[in-house]
Amino acid sequence: MTSILDVTNVSKSYGGVAANTDISLSVKKGAITGLIGPNGSGKTTLFNSIVGYHPIDSGSIRFEGLEISKMPVQKIARLGLLRTFQQTRIYGQMNGIDNMLISLPHRKMRFVDAFSRNGSEEHERAESLLEFVGLYEKRFLRAGSLSFGQQKLLEFAMALMNEPTGLLLDEPTAGINPTLINGLIDRLRRANEEFGITLFVIEHNMRVIMNMAEHIYCLAHGQLLAEGTPSEIQNDQRVIDAYLGAH
């Protein structure tokens, strides 16, 4: 299978702290790939590097064969590579529907399209995606008044509204009630299968990531520690050591 995202020898340091050192990985098109690692191992830094939040020190990042390591955030987003945030970000003063409508893919819009209103087609899509994540009942509430878990679901729905080809999810289940997690796993899978979105997921919840991902990368101390299928990772002594602090 071909890969959609290729990270080659990427390094990034903040002053004297090497957040990422010489990391290479690839995300297969149409698959769900996981990224795990103890706190502070450089997972979010890697995500930020990929979507263009900060320049990388060295290495190359390619999305669908196109070099994106020097592009600004908006341009990468318009190529169809989106991310959600660990600290959930939604538009707090707007209601759920408006949050969805503003997330329409701007790469498919011309500037003059900004001066028209959204039609019933867009509204239906927004409502059906809110239904998909289970927020249909709350669609007219101000997004800022939703609970953290609901905001997380809203952010996920907004990302789907944008019709990305690749979606980077930063801890999608953090802060979500354990009983809702199963539902979320199911939705992530369906987003992957039905909408054909390639997912690259940072996750701390081992049950979630082992269930979902085809292939997992593990980071520790800013370096790539191990990779493989869920069962390979689970049985890798280095990964276990890293999580238990032996490293």
Binding site: R78, I90, I102, P105, H106
Partner: peptide
């Protein structure tokens, strides 16, 4: 309005 509420998010969603 999106820029007002969270400009970084708006950028991350590809808004010009």
């Amino acid at each position: 309005n999106a820029i007002r509420d969270d400009e970084e998010k708006a950028e991350a969603m590809g808004i010009h």
